[in-house]
Amino acid sequence: MSGVNVGAGRVVTVFGGSGFVGRYVVRALARDGWRVRIACRRPDLAFHLQPQGRVGQIMAVQANVRHPESVAAALRGASAVVNLVGILAESGAQKFSKVQSEGARAIGEAAKAAGINNVVHISAIGADTQSASDYGRSKAEGEAAILAAVPTAVILRPSVIFGPEDDFFNRFATMARFFPVIPVVGAQTKFQPVYVGDVAEAVAVAIAGGAKAGAVYELGGPEVKSFGELVDYILKVTERERRVASLSFSTGKLVAGVTQFFTKISLGLFPTLLRMTADQVELLKHDNVVSEAAIREQRTLQGLGIAPQAIEAIVPTYLYRYRKTGQYQAQRLGA
């Protein structure tokens, strides 16, 4: 369903379009002929996306999902809405409930008030109103709020997303560069990494009408791997010999408590690379993979007509820089 001129010059507002996933979504929507309005807290951080489309096709406006009036303003004249706003950890005024629950509700209600029925909302596998994780609960609450306001909305739940700017493969590759031991909490927990370009394509297909209205899709790549296997793969690609220390969930929570304490007393100056929260440890207790029900009901990438990319086809293209000689690997003496 996606393709050139699907948007036919109509406006789609993309909340959170300046982030990692946003840049790929904006590119896919611009390719399909949409006029893309990127709504974000810092419009200046979205200026680099303008070359992704024709002159004047992509513009940024200021909006904050914690301020409903700015959300409504960002939707004026729009025909479709994409919500990519989400956080992995709380910081300052950025709370799970405010951003992922109440923020989604503000977008849904503003879309309803504007008469917009074409809404795509990015959630996450693991969204559950009964989750012990604040992240998981807020994601589920956001989904419910969007569907309550706009029953035709499409919900997309990806597993861990990978790509050149990701915060998963890059993070552990960086740790392998500096530390002799890589701590892993929940080494047996399973993930189904999905390529950011495939997630963006799913958004484009859904916004073009190629998804079931009101459905919840689960997005995963072609492979299921444990957390420990993924870290081993990162070490293999980056050619780093490091010890992987498997930590229990109880130990993980102790470590998370320490890093959260130092993050707080350092006023946020504690290295991001070393941060971990108790809520993230809670999430790691459950596998992050596409459910059997979603597969059976074709609520997957394949159900949207998308063949998912494998990590082996993409990840080495950006992790090579973490090798000792980076892009000059082939020029090493004796190579």
Score class of each variant (00 low, 15 high):
residue 38 I to H: 02
residue 161 I to Y: 06
residue 297 E to G: 05
residue 56 G to I: 04
residue 21 V to H: 04
residue 284 L to Y: 07
residue 93 A to R: 12
residue 330 A to I: 12
residue 152 T to H: 07
residue 290 V to T: 08
residue 179 F to S: 12
residue 195 Y to H: 14
residue 175 M to Q: 15
residue 231 V to Y: 06
residue 211 A to P: 03
residue 8 A to I: 07
residue 36 V to P: 05
residue 237 V to Y: 01
residue 204 A to L: 13
residue 38 I to C: 04
residue 214 G to R: 03
residue 75 L to F: 08
residue 85 V to W: 01
residue 47 F to V: 09
residue 116 I to L: 13
residue 178 F to V: 15
residue 205 V to A: 13
residue 72 A to E: 15
residue 144 A to R: 14
residue 41 R to L: 05
residue 47 F to K: 12
residue 73 A to D: 15
residue 17 G to F: 03
residue 317 T to Y: 00
residue 268 G to W: 12
residue 24 Y to M: 05
residue 64 N to I: 03
residue 238 T to Y: 02
residue 241 E to A: 10
residue 239 E to G: 04
residue 6 V to M: 15
residue 156 L to W: 14
residue 23 R to Q: 12
residue 19 G to S: 07
residue 204 A to P: 07
residue 250 S to H: 01
residue 176 A to T: 10
residue 130 Q to T: 13
residue 248 S to C: 02
residue 14 V to H: 02
residue 258 V to M: 11
residue 235 L to Y: 05
residue 222 P to N: 09
residue 46 A to N: 08
residue 265 I to D: 08
residue 123 S to A: 04
residue 33 G to L: 06
residue 272 T to E: 15
residue 167 D to Q: 15
residue 277 T to K: 04
residue 285 K to C: 00
residue 253 K to L: 04
residue 180 P to S: 10
residue 281 V to K: 00
residue 304 L to M: 12
residue 217 Y to M: 09
residue 193 P to R: 08
residue 254 L to N: 00
residue 248 S to A: 01
residue 137 R to Q: 13
residue 167 D to H: 15
residue 216 V to K: 13
residue 44 D to H: 11
residue 19 G to Q: 03
residue 320 Y to R: 10
residue 176 A to W: 04
residue 59 M to Q: 12
residue 140 A to D: 06
residue 237 V to Q: 07
residue 130 Q to S: 13
residue 194 V to E: 12
residue 312 E to C: 02
residue 199 V to F: 09
residue 39 A to M: 11
residue 130 Q to H: 14
residue 1 M to A: 14
residue 240 R to S: 15
residue 11 V to S: 13
residue 328 Y to H: 14
residue 191 F to I: 04
residue 251 T to N: 01
residue 247 L to N: 03
residue 329 Q to H: 15
residue 124 A to K: 02
residue 241 E to M: 11
residue 289 V to I: 14
residue 310 A to L: 01
residue 45 L to Q: 10
residue 49 L to A: 06
residue 271 P to G: 07
residue 308 P to V: 04
residue 49 L to H: 00
residue 63 A to H: 10
residue 276 M to A: 11
residue 146 I to P: 10
residue 280 Q to N: 13
residue 129 T to Q: 10
residue 288 N to E: 03
residue 240 R to D: 06
residue 252 G to I: 01
residue 201 E to F: 11
residue 30 A to L: 02
residue 262 F to K: 06
residue 224 V to E: 05
residue 43 P to Q: 03
residue 224 V to G: 08
residue 334 G to L: 03
residue 165 E to V: 10
residue 185 V to C: 05
residue 230 L to K: 01
residue 210 G to L: 12
residue 266 S to F: 05
residue 187 A to I: 08
residue 241 E to V: 12
residue 127 A to R: 01
residue 135 Y to G: 01
residue 12 V to P: 10
residue 28 A to E: 14
residue 89 A to Y: 08
residue 141 E to C: 00
residue 218 E to Y: 08
residue 156 L to Q: 10
residue 190 K to G: 00
residue 317 T to M: 02
residue 269 L to R: 15
residue 222 P to F: 06
residue 1 M to H: 12
residue 327 Q to F: 14
residue 140 A to H: 03
residue 329 Q to C: 02
residue 169 F to M: 04
residue 141 E to W: 10
residue 132 A to F: 08
residue 200 A to Q: 05
residue 177 R to H: 14
residue 124 A to F: 02
residue 65 V to E: 12
residue 112 K to E: 13
